[in-house]
Design a binder for these strands. Structure first.
Length: 759
DNA sequence: CCGAGTACTTAGGACCCGCCGT
DNA sequence: ACGGCGGGTCCTAAGTACTCGG
């Protein structure tokens, strides 16, 4: 019995305890009018109060150029103007700060003619070594709250035991969260239902129960379908809306975001990442998560801690509210934070991926991985030796590092009972590893995000022996394979080789190393498309190494089936053509029996099935055409097509059907006048051959790729400089490999390497 | 030294939107 | 013009690792 099975039930007590404890933190929601907060753009409205050295220059600019300085856009304008790239990139950081103001000012005057929109980016990577994370000045506008709950229209209700229920808005909101998921996997998951229902009842109780005296006791008697349907209608309406109105809505949204989207870090404009506070919802835990479905409560300004410069203006909280706390901690990268109620852990608002801070961390990460290059040999030598160590702990360390190094396992920290049962290296258990002499190991476990890790591999002989030892009785299923180990012990050991070396560095190192090796194998020839294919193949190798998967999309099975059928149909067509040839000249079969052999592969059942599908498809085609045509005519106030017209079309299909039936009966194919010679038929067959070929390859590619996610390794593991070098060397435009946001994230890489750079 | 607490990276799925074939 | 599809972005869950206080 696994831990998950043992723990999944009988959680009633702990769960309800959590709920009631959390309840003390619940705040009453302020009436709507009150909460119509207008967060002022403190950055632009109070620029004069800024005392920060790095900002002083802005004042001058403004004095110089801007008289209506309370404009909302002041900040962006100012920042754009001063964003001029410093040509004097050798300025030492230490003295930079003091001189910055002067320098900037001087340059400001000199560079006024530079294009305004080139602005942006501070090229930190051109300034020698990266400074330690943290900031000297941080100014921002706080966070954006989700809209208040809007009650459902009065005719949309939850039904209990077939009776409409009057819910207080607070409870209705929660019911709505569930209703929205009614038809999803979450909605159908019993654990999710149970957790949701507990919390729902709790909220209901807190708010005085139902308003019409109905007492809700059993989940099974709840009918959420009315609410669900209503949401579906809303979705439809939103989709239909599709005019330019959609664009207007988007613009409005963007305008609201505007002030939160940017902040000022060390005097420079930078993008904020997740400035939207997470809206309340049901927690969607992955895998067999014991807490999935629990209510994630609304976050209020009072829950939020802001982090900014001491002298930065404090953003206005929503009307009638106060911030939880204001902090000035320059050693952390977050702008705001709050505690969530599911695990009592923190959520952070941080800078966007394209920010200097993130870029610097990224560069550091890859440089650390590269540093491992010069230690990896001795590390490998050592762990190979330690595989035979007399000290158990040493052996376990050695095997663990081996697994992390060779199979790219994660460290595998300890997890608590109220999380999904997933493991990494150190937390592997007896049952996750099967040993098959002489040296085959089968890994089968759930890793991060409950993604299955399944591999049958050959391992080092001594590793195999050690694993046998680690599994020796009295150990049994449920027991830790590495009972003396945890990530911190492992990491401590690793640091003795190299400062900052931890288990996760191996993943980065091996991913990038693999990519480099794979790219080295690609010949510099062929079209850009071919090169891209090869790049993606290399990328895929890495993704497979890291076990980056994606679930096949809902339509995948169907679309594969469809593609398969299309191929089948093409083959049928080919056979039909071949039959046609034989009808013209029977003797040809003897001359080339192989060519005609596939005719016998086609069974009557197959044939009938294909016929039916084609008929069905044709019918649908005309039905759709009819509906569409009439929709159009209705819209344009024209006369509608009569049913008669449709029937005429369908007649044609009937004819085809008869033709097929005849074909089945007699085995004779009626030749089309355009296809009535052996030559013409053969040519047609050739064309079909090609189509079948390409369709098959495409399908295979699709299937192979359907479960592999290339993105994660591209974003997190493959040193972007590898891709940049590849593009430069092979004449592939970088846009083919990095999307716009990736190009922004990796500007430091794109602008800093030449084609000789190697990982 | 350890565990709780904190801060940061890594991850897959939802969702949206533009493109393509019809 | 339209709907299905797939790429790109958004969202937030789920990891790793470090720190700090007893």
């Amino acid at each position: 019995m696994t831990r998950a099975e043992m723990s999944s039930d009988d959680e009633d007590t702990p769960l309800s305890q959590t709920i009631s404890r959390k309840n003390q933190r619940v705040r009453k929601i302020v009436p709507e009018e009150d909460s119509d907060y207008d967060s002022d753009d403190v950055l632009s409205k109070q620029p004069k109060k800024k005392k920060t050295k790095t900002l002083s220059k802005e004042k001058k600019i403004k004095v110089k150029s801007d008289s209506d300085d309370d404009d909302d856009e002041v900040m962006s304008k100012k920042l754009e103007k001063k964003k001029k790239k410093k040509k004097t990139k050798t300025i030492k950081k230490s003295i930079k700060k003091e001189k910055e103001t002067e320098n900037d000012l001087k340059e400001e005057e000199n560079n006024d003619d530079e294009e305004e929109d080139k602005e942006e980016s501070y090229k930190w990577w051109e300034e020698g070594d990266v400074k330690d994370n943290g900031w000297t000045s941080l100014v921002h506008n706080g966070v954006m709250f989700p809209p208040e709950y809007e009650p459902l229209p009065s005719h949309i209700k939850l039904y209990y035991d077939n009776q409409p229920v009057e819910l207080p808005p607070e409870a209705e909101e929660v019911a709505g969260f569930y209703a929205a998921l009614l038809e999803t996997d979450h909605g159908k998951n019993p654990v999710f239902q149970k957790n949701f229902f507990n919390d729902f009842l709790q909220i209901l109780k807190e708010n005085g129960g139902t308003l019409n005296g109905i007492e809700i006791k059993s989940f099974d008697k709840c009918d959420f379908s009315k609410i669900y349907n209503y949401f579906e209608v809303l979705k439809e309406e939103k989709k239909k809306l599709s005019a330019q109105e959609k664009k207007e809505l988007r613009l409005e949204r963007q305008k609201e975001e505007e002030i939160y989207k940017f902040c000022e870090l060390n005097g420079r404009k930078e993008q904020v990442g997740n400035f939207r506070v997470e809206p309340p919802d049901l927690f969607r835990g992955r895998g067999k998560h014991p807490k999935t479905g629990k209510l994630k409560r609304r976050v209020h300004p009072e829950d939020i801690v802001l982090n900014l410069s001491k002298d930065a203006p404090i953003p206005k909280p929503p009307k009638g509210h106060k911030w939880g706390e204001i902090r000035h901690d320059p050693n952390v990268q977050w702008l705001a934070m709050w505690r969530e109620n599911i695990f009592n852990s923190f959520k952070y608002v941080r800078l966007a991926a394209n920010s200097s801070l993130k870029g610097q961390s990224d560069l550091k990460k890859f440089e650390k991985a590269r540093e491992l290059k010069s230690h990896i040999d001795s590390i490998r030598r050592d762990y190979k030796r330690s595989l035979k160590s007399k000290v158990m702990l040493e052996r376990q360390k050695a095997v663990a590092i081996y697994l992390i190094d060779v199979f790219a396992l994660r460290a595998g920290g300890e997890k608590s009972e109220d999380e999904a049962d997933t493991v990494g290296c150190c937390s592997l258990r007896y049952e996750h590893v099967t040993l098959q002499p002489p040296n085959i190991v089968i890994f089968d476990f759930l890793g991060k995000d409950s993604i299955r890790f399944y591999q049958e591999v050959e391992v080092d002989k001594q590793v195999f022996k050690d694993l046998i030892i680690f599994k020796r009785p009295p150990k049994q299923p449920g027991h830790q394979l590495f009972d003396r180990l945890d990530p911190s012990i492992l990491n401590k050991h690793l640091q003795s080789y190299m400062p900052g070396l931890t288990a996760k560095v191996f993943r980065t190192y091996n991913a990038s190393k693999t990519m480099q090796d794979q790219l080295d194998l690609i010949p510099n020839e062929g079209s850009v498309a071919e090169k891209l294919l090869r790049y993606n193949a290399a990328n895929r190798t890495v993704a497979i190494l890291c076990n980056h998967q994606r679930s096949v999309t809902k339509g995948h099975a169907q679309s594969v089936q469809k593609a398969n059928f299309r191929i089948k149909e093409l083959i049928w067509q080919r056979i039909r053509l071949k039959k046609s040839i034989l009808q013209l000249d029977k003797k040809l079969r003897k001359k080339n029996p192989k060519f005609y052999a596939e005719i016998d592969d086609l069974t009557k059942e197959d044939e009938i099935e294909i016929h039916e599908k084609i008929i069905e498809r044709e019918n649908e085609k005309y039905q759709r055409k009819f509906v569409r045509e009439n929709d159009k005519r209705k819209f344009e106030n024209e006369e509608l097509l009569e049913e008669k017209v449709l029937n005429e079309w369908l007649e044609k299909v009937e004819d085809l059907k008869k033709e097929f039936a005849e074909e089945i009966k007699t085995g004779e194919i009626v030749l089309k006048p355009t296809l009535n010679t052996v030559e013409k038929l053969e040519k047609q067959i050739e064309r079909l051959d090609l189509r079948i070929e390409t369709s098959s390859i495409q399908l295979k590619d699709k299937e192979e790729n359907s479960e592999v996610s290339l993105g994660t390794s591209k974003i997190n593991y493959i040193d972007p400089r590898l891709s940049v070098v590849f593009c430069k060397k092979f004449g592939v435009p970088i846009e083919k490999i990095f999307t716009k946001s990736l190009r922004e994230k990796f500007t430091w890489a794109i602008e800093s390497v030449d084609e000789n750079w190697r990982f």
